[in-house]
Write a protein that binds this DNA or RNA. Structure first.
Length: 203
DNA sequence: AACCAGCCCAACCGCATGTAA
DNA sequence: CTTACATGCGGTTGGGCTGGT
Protein backbone atom coordinates (compact mmCIF):
# COMPACT_ATOMS: atom_id res chain seq x y z
CA UNK A 1 0.00 0.00 0.00
CA UNK A 2 2.78 2.34 0.86
CA UNK A 3 4.16 1.92 -2.63
CA UNK A 4 0.90 3.27 -3.98
CA UNK A 5 0.98 6.16 -1.54
CA UNK A 6 4.50 7.04 -2.53
CA UNK A 7 3.82 7.13 -6.23
CA UNK A 8 0.42 8.77 -5.90
CA UNK A 9 -0.16 11.77 -8.08
CA UNK A 10 -1.32 15.09 -6.68
CA UNK A 11 -3.10 18.09 -8.05
CA UNK A 12 -6.07 18.40 -10.34
CA UNK A 13 -7.82 15.38 -11.75
CA UNK A 14 -8.12 14.84 -15.50
CA UNK A 15 -11.07 13.40 -17.42
CA UNK A 16 -9.46 9.99 -17.75
CA UNK A 17 -8.93 9.65 -14.00
CA UNK A 18 -12.51 10.78 -13.38
CA UNK A 19 -13.76 8.15 -15.77
CA UNK A 20 -11.71 5.39 -14.11
CA UNK A 21 -12.99 6.37 -10.69
CA UNK A 22 -16.59 6.69 -11.87
CA UNK A 23 -16.47 3.27 -13.49
CA UNK A 24 -15.03 1.74 -10.35
CA UNK A 25 -17.74 3.24 -8.12
CA UNK A 26 -20.49 2.22 -10.54
CA UNK A 27 -19.21 -1.33 -10.43
CA UNK A 28 -18.21 -1.70 -6.76
CA UNK A 29 -19.99 1.12 -4.97
CA UNK A 30 -18.41 3.50 -2.47
CA UNK A 31 -16.20 2.50 0.45
CA UNK A 32 -12.91 0.58 0.43
CA UNK A 33 -11.29 3.63 -1.11
CA UNK A 34 -7.80 2.31 -0.54
CA UNK A 35 -8.55 -0.57 -2.90
CA UNK A 36 -9.12 1.75 -5.82
CA UNK A 37 -5.47 2.47 -6.69
CA UNK A 38 -4.67 -1.24 -6.42
CA UNK A 39 -7.61 -2.42 -8.50
CA UNK A 40 -7.69 0.32 -11.14
CA UNK A 41 -4.04 1.32 -11.30
CA UNK A 42 -5.08 4.89 -10.61
CA UNK A 43 -2.13 6.81 -9.19
CA UNK A 44 -4.18 8.48 -6.49
CA UNK A 45 -4.49 7.80 -2.80
CA UNK A 46 -7.72 6.30 -1.49
CA UNK A 47 -8.31 9.53 0.33
CA UNK A 48 -7.99 11.53 -2.83
CA UNK A 49 -10.40 9.19 -4.64
CA UNK A 50 -12.96 9.54 -1.90
CA UNK A 51 -12.73 13.32 -1.94
CA UNK A 52 -12.98 13.50 -5.71
CA UNK A 53 -16.06 11.28 -5.73
CA UNK A 54 -17.79 13.02 -2.83
CA UNK A 55 -17.11 16.56 -3.97
CA UNK A 56 -17.32 16.32 -7.70
CA UNK A 57 -18.32 13.05 -9.32
CA UNK A 58 -21.37 12.11 -7.24
CA UNK A 59 -24.29 12.35 -9.71
CA UNK A 60 -26.55 14.45 -7.47
CA UNK A 61 -23.95 17.08 -6.61
CA UNK A 62 -25.15 20.54 -7.61
CA UNK A 63 -22.77 22.89 -9.37
CA UNK A 64 -22.94 26.64 -9.61
CA UNK A 65 -23.88 29.49 -7.33
CA UNK A 66 -25.85 29.05 -4.15
CA UNK A 67 -29.45 30.23 -4.40
CA UNK A 68 -30.83 32.74 -1.89
CA UNK A 69 -32.65 29.92 -0.11
CA UNK A 70 -29.48 27.88 0.14
CA UNK A 71 -27.53 30.88 1.36
CA UNK A 72 -30.10 31.60 4.03
CA UNK A 73 -30.08 27.96 5.06
CA UNK A 74 -26.30 27.98 5.39
CA UNK A 75 -26.44 31.08 7.58
CA UNK A 76 -29.09 29.59 9.82
CA UNK A 77 -27.50 26.20 10.14
CA UNK A 78 -24.10 27.73 10.78
CA UNK A 79 -25.52 29.81 13.62
CA UNK A 80 -26.81 26.59 15.11
CA UNK A 81 -24.09 24.09 14.31
CA UNK A 82 -20.95 26.19 13.95
CA UNK A 83 -18.34 24.97 11.49
CA UNK A 84 -19.88 21.52 11.16
CA UNK A 85 -19.76 21.68 7.41
CA UNK A 86 -20.72 18.09 6.79
CA UNK A 87 -23.78 18.41 9.01
CA UNK A 88 -24.78 21.64 7.30
CA UNK A 89 -24.20 20.17 3.85
CA UNK A 90 -26.23 17.13 4.80
CA UNK A 91 -29.26 19.36 5.11
CA UNK A 92 -28.75 21.18 1.83
CA UNK A 93 -29.59 18.78 -0.99
CA UNK A 94 -26.90 18.53 -3.64
CA UNK A 95 -24.28 20.53 -1.77
CA UNK A 96 -21.07 19.10 -0.33
CA UNK A 97 -19.28 20.04 2.86
CA UNK A 98 -16.45 21.48 0.78
CA UNK A 99 -18.84 23.66 -1.21
CA UNK A 100 -20.53 24.92 1.93
CA UNK A 101 -17.20 25.58 3.60
CA UNK A 102 -15.84 27.44 0.59
CA UNK A 103 -19.05 29.39 0.22
CA UNK A 104 -18.95 30.40 3.85
CA UNK A 105 -15.29 31.32 3.83
CA UNK A 106 -15.38 33.32 0.62
CA UNK A 107 -18.83 34.89 0.62
CA UNK A 108 -20.73 34.73 3.86
CA UNK A 109 -18.02 35.35 6.43
CA UNK A 110 -17.25 38.52 4.52
CA UNK A 111 -20.88 39.48 4.09
CA UNK A 112 -21.74 38.86 7.73
CA UNK A 113 -18.47 40.24 9.05
CA UNK A 114 -17.54 37.08 10.90
CA UNK A 115 -14.34 37.33 12.91
CA UNK A 116 -12.20 34.42 11.75
CA UNK A 117 -10.42 34.26 15.09
CA UNK A 118 -13.68 33.22 16.72
CA UNK A 119 -14.24 30.46 14.24
CA UNK A 120 -12.47 27.71 16.14
CA UNK A 121 -14.43 28.05 19.36
CA UNK A 122 -17.75 27.72 17.60
CA UNK A 123 -16.43 24.62 15.93
CA UNK A 124 -15.33 22.96 19.17
CA UNK A 125 -18.66 23.65 20.84
CA UNK A 126 -20.59 22.27 17.92
CA UNK A 127 -18.70 18.98 18.13
CA UNK A 128 -21.19 17.81 20.74
CA UNK A 129 -24.30 18.23 18.70
CA UNK A 130 -24.18 14.78 17.06
CA UNK A 131 -23.95 13.18 20.50
CA UNK A 132 -26.93 15.19 21.62
CA UNK A 133 -28.76 14.20 18.46
CA UNK A 134 -27.97 10.60 19.29
CA UNK A 135 -29.75 11.07 22.59
CA UNK A 136 -26.60 10.89 24.68
CA UNK A 137 -27.70 12.94 27.66
CA UNK A 138 -24.56 12.85 29.73
CA UNK A 139 -22.46 14.39 27.03
CA UNK A 140 -20.09 16.03 29.48
CA UNK A 141 -18.73 12.64 30.39
CA UNK A 142 -18.01 11.77 26.81
CA UNK A 143 -14.33 12.37 26.22
CA UNK A 144 -12.23 11.41 23.28
CA UNK A 145 -11.03 7.86 23.01
CA UNK A 146 -7.45 9.03 23.33
CA UNK A 147 -8.05 10.76 26.62
CA UNK A 148 -7.66 14.26 25.30
CA UNK A 149 -9.90 16.96 26.61
CA UNK A 150 -12.08 17.80 23.68
CA UNK A 151 -14.86 19.68 25.36
CA UNK A 152 -13.17 22.64 26.97
CA UNK A 153 -15.68 24.91 25.32
CA UNK A 154 -18.68 22.97 26.44
CA UNK A 155 -21.42 25.45 27.20
CA UNK A 156 -24.60 25.44 29.20
CA UNK A 157 -26.34 26.34 25.97
CA UNK A 158 -25.47 22.94 24.61
CA UNK A 159 -26.60 21.20 27.76
CA UNK A 160 -29.88 23.00 27.40
CA UNK A 161 -30.02 22.00 23.80
CA UNK A 162 -29.55 18.40 24.88
CA UNK A 163 -32.42 18.66 27.31
CA UNK A 164 -34.69 19.79 24.51
CA UNK A 165 -34.59 16.31 23.08
CA UNK A 166 -37.38 16.05 20.55
CA UNK A 167 -38.56 19.56 21.24
CA UNK A 168 -39.95 21.79 18.54
CA UNK A 169 -38.86 25.40 18.36
CA UNK A 170 -40.33 28.40 16.67
CA UNK A 171 -38.53 31.68 16.28
CA UNK A 172 -39.77 35.25 15.89
CA UNK A 173 -40.03 34.78 12.16
CA UNK A 174 -42.22 31.74 12.35
CA UNK A 175 -39.43 29.32 11.55
CA UNK A 176 -39.71 25.89 13.14
CA UNK A 177 -37.01 23.54 14.30
CA UNK A 178 -37.15 20.08 15.73
CA UNK A 179 -34.69 18.11 17.88
CA UNK A 180 -33.12 15.73 17.44
CA UNK A 181 -33.74 16.55 13.87
CA UNK A 182 -33.94 14.31 10.94
CA UNK A 183 -35.41 17.28 9.16
CA UNK A 184 -34.76 20.90 10.02
CA UNK A 185 -37.94 22.58 8.98
CA UNK A 186 -36.24 25.85 8.29
CA UNK A 187 -38.56 28.22 6.53
CA UNK A 188 -36.27 30.75 4.90
CA UNK A 189 -36.39 34.39 5.78
CA UNK A 190 -33.69 36.99 5.28
CA UNK A 191 -30.88 36.94 7.79
CA UNK A 192 -32.71 36.36 11.00
CA UNK A 193 -29.95 34.24 12.46
CA UNK A 194 -29.20 36.45 15.42
CA UNK A 195 -32.82 36.56 16.45
CA UNK A 196 -33.04 32.87 15.78
CA UNK A 197 -30.06 32.12 17.97
CA UNK A 198 -31.32 34.43 20.68
CA UNK A 199 -34.84 33.07 20.80
CA UNK A 200 -33.63 29.52 20.38
CA UNK A 201 -31.48 29.55 23.47
CA UNK A 202 -33.79 31.83 25.43
CA UNK A 203 -36.54 29.23 25.48
C1' DA B 1 -0.29 44.29 -23.75
C1' DA B 2 1.81 43.32 -19.43
C1' DC B 3 1.84 43.11 -14.79
C1' DC B 4 -0.09 42.57 -10.28
C1' DA B 5 -3.23 41.80 -6.48
C1' DG B 6 -7.12 39.63 -4.84
C1' DC B 7 -10.49 36.09 -5.17
C1' DC B 8 -12.32 31.47 -5.81
C1' DC B 9 -12.44 26.72 -5.21
C1' DA B 10 -10.49 21.99 -5.89
C1' DA B 11 -7.50 19.36 -3.50
C1' DC B 12 -4.29 18.30 0.22
C1' DC B 13 -2.98 17.62 5.10
C1' DG B 14 -3.35 16.36 9.78
C1' DC B 15 -6.12 14.74 13.22
C1' DA B 16 -10.22 12.38 15.22
C1' DT B 17 -13.15 8.64 15.15
C1' DG B 18 -14.87 4.07 13.91
C1' DT B 19 -14.11 -0.71 13.41
C1' DA B 20 -12.14 -5.15 12.46
C1' DA B 21 -8.69 -8.35 13.85
C1' DC C 1 -8.25 -4.58 25.76
C1' DT C 2 -5.06 -3.19 22.26
C1' DT C 3 -3.53 -2.24 17.85
C1' DA C 4 -3.71 -1.18 13.09
C1' DC C 5 -6.03 0.40 9.46
C1' DA C 6 -9.93 2.85 7.04
C1' DT C 7 -12.80 6.60 6.81
C1' DG C 8 -14.52 11.20 7.74
C1' DC C 9 -13.96 15.94 8.93
C1' DG C 10 -12.35 20.75 9.21
C1' DG C 11 -8.56 23.83 8.24
C1' DT C 12 -5.40 25.31 4.92
C1' DT C 13 -3.00 25.77 0.58
C1' DG C 14 -1.96 27.03 -4.00
C1' DG C 15 -3.06 27.24 -9.03
C1' DG C 16 -5.88 29.52 -12.13
C1' DC C 17 -8.89 33.20 -13.21
C1' DT C 18 -10.36 38.03 -13.27
C1' DG C 19 -10.37 42.82 -12.80
C1' DG C 20 -7.75 46.95 -12.09
C1' DT C 21 -3.87 49.82 -13.29
Amino acid sequence: MEAYENESKKGFWNAEEDSVLTNYVKKHGTGKWNRIPKVTGLKRSGKSCRLRWMNYLTPDVKRGDFSEEEEDLVVRLHSLLGNRWSLIAGRIPGRTDNQVKNFWNTHLSKKLGVDKKKKRKACVTAKYIPRVEAGERDCKSASSSKGKLVHESWSDDLMELGSMHEGIMRDDFGCTFSFPNTVFDLCTSPYCTQSFHHSFFAL
